[in-house]
Simulated scan of single mutants.
Amino acid sequence: MYEPIRAKSVHSTMAGAPSDFPHRSREEELDIQLAGHLAALLAVTDDLRALTPSAELDTAAERLAGEVRRLRGDRAPLRAAPAAAGDPAALHRRAHTLAGRALVVAASRADTAAAILTAERMDAHAAALAGPKELSTTR
């Protein structure tokens, strides 16, 4: 039927066996993932701020930077110079997608502050994509 294994496994699966590489916990992995999504959202927010400056985007950028700093052990996020050109609608779609990804990770790690911030950003970008609402004149 099956031939017995004759060589030692290349994978260390025995409990208590020393390994050659460091392992991270699930929480550490989720922190890294969430910080990455928030940093990407911050970069898109900075691009939007360059195209359409607003106090709301300035506040959002500072809040995102604070969350990234918290998740990275008080290390400030690297911020590139924003792109001077681009399509604001495409940037809002990208930001909405990134906020959604961050929301999923924040929810899985039970990070209420990050979940609230990303949900707010999703709402803001969805509203920006919807555009201004016209008032109906029908009675």
Rank of each mutant, 00 (worst) to 15 (best):
P4Y: 05
P4H: 02
I5M: 06
R6I: 08
S9G: 03
S9D: 09
S9V: 01
V10F: 07
H11L: 11
H11I: 10
T13I: 12
T13H: 08
T13Q: 12
M14I: 04
M14D: 05
A15F: 15
A17Y: 02
P18V: 14
S19H: 07
D20I: 08
D20F: 10
P22C: 05
H23K: 14
H23V: 10
R26G: 06
E27G: 11
E29T: 14
E29W: 12
I32D: 14
L34E: 13
L34S: 13
G36S: 13
H37P: 08
L38F: 07
A39G: 01
A40S: 14
L42G: 02
L42Q: 11
A43Q: 04
A43F: 08
V44H: 07
D46F: 09
D47F: 01
L48E: 02
R49E: 14
R49I: 01
R49Y: 07
A50M: 14
T52I: 15
P53G: 02
S54R: 05
A55L: 06
E56N: 04
E56H: 06
E56P: 02
L57N: 00
L57I: 04
L57V: 03
D58N: 01
D58M: 07
A61G: 03
E62P: 05
A65N: 01
A65V: 08
G66F: 09
E67S: 03
R69L: 12
L71E: 10
D74N: 15
D74T: 13
P77A: 14
L78I: 09
R79Y: 15
P82Y: 10
P82C: 00
P82H: 00
P82G: 00
A83P: 02
A83Q: 15
A84I: 04
A85P: 03
G86Y: 01
G86N: 05
P88V: 05
P88G: 01
A89P: 01
A89F: 13
